[in-house]
């Protein structure tokens, strides 16, 4: 009987400690500390155990990896330094894309297609930005504020969380105000302005790389020196 080779156990990246998942002693720390242990059969220790027994497909077919918030609290206390979160992400990445639950993969697809996770058309984006900026300029101290977009040679690139141009327009202004007060020479972009990268959650490295690549492109084309990490 030969061990299968291409298993989660063998390829999930290790934490910086470099410790193999086999080191797990099933002590229960992770399960005892995870707030959703027992919900819908979720139990981090069980997941690790199944990985050690090469029961990958069962995990891939289950919704367990999608219940995990990947918060890493389990790992934080794990006395053996097991890579539980990387295991979860590895499982997520092996799920057929059309079986990824909820909006995660759909957002990734939209982002790849349209430049943002919600598929907001360019003109709508420009309108919202302009509208919110106008309102802000009515406040004392910000009278001369004009939102910079695609400004070449700006000092700082400011990407946006899609929810700010969706349901939470009112939260767009906070950074603008700070930049304005700090006299920061910043810019946003009209295309590919999305700051969040759900490829991280869906375990989709390919998409993740493309989306990160867009930021690199912005910085190069607009000759921007500094980046403010979106999240």
């Amino acid at each position: 009987m030969n061990e299968p080779t291409d298993t989660i156990k063998s390829h999930a990246p290790l934490r910086p400690s470099g410790i193999k998942p086999e080191t797990c002693m099933a002590c229960g720390t992770c399960s005892a500390g995870c707030p959703i242990t027992g919900m819908e059969g979720f139990d981090p220790r069980k997941i690790v155990r199944m990985v050690l027994e090469n029961r990958d497909q069962e995990l891939i077919d289950s919704k367990l990896p999608w219940l995990c918030t990947m918060c890493g609290k389990c790992e934080h206390a794990c006395p053996m330094g097991i890579n539980i979160i990387n295991i979860i992400r590895d499982i997520r990445g092996q799920v057929d894309r059309d079986k990824v639950p909820g909006q995660i993969h759909k957002g990734v697809e939209l982002c790849l297609e349209t430049g943002n996770n919600i598929g907001l058309p360019g003109e709508d984006f420009t309108f919202i930005i302009g509208d919110v900026a106008e309102e802000m300029a009515e406040e004392e101290g910000f009278e001369d504020f004009v939102p910079p977009i695609d400004k070449k040679g700006a000092s700082l690139l400011h990407t946006l969380h899609n929810k700010l141009v969706n349901t939470q327009n009112e939260d767009l202004v906070h950074w603008w105000k700070i930049f304005h007060a700090a006299k920061e020479d910043f810019t946003m972009t009209s295309e590919n302005w999305e700051g969040v990268n759900w490829g991280l959650f869906s375990g989709d490295d390919e998409a993740m790389k493309i989306i990160v690549g867009r930021i690199v492109d912005h910085m190069d084309t607009l000759r921007i020196e500094h980046l403010m990490y979106p999240e």
Binding site: G28, A32, G33, T37, D43, A77
Partner: peptide
């Protein structure tokens, strides 16, 4: 009880502590 405890937390309004385990 065969389980390693993750961490110790305070109770809401007393000086007691909460422990979770499997």
């Amino acid at each position: 009880i065969r389980c390693r405890v993750h961490s110790v937390e305070p109770c809401e309004n007393t000086d007691g502590m909460k422990i979770s385990y499997v």
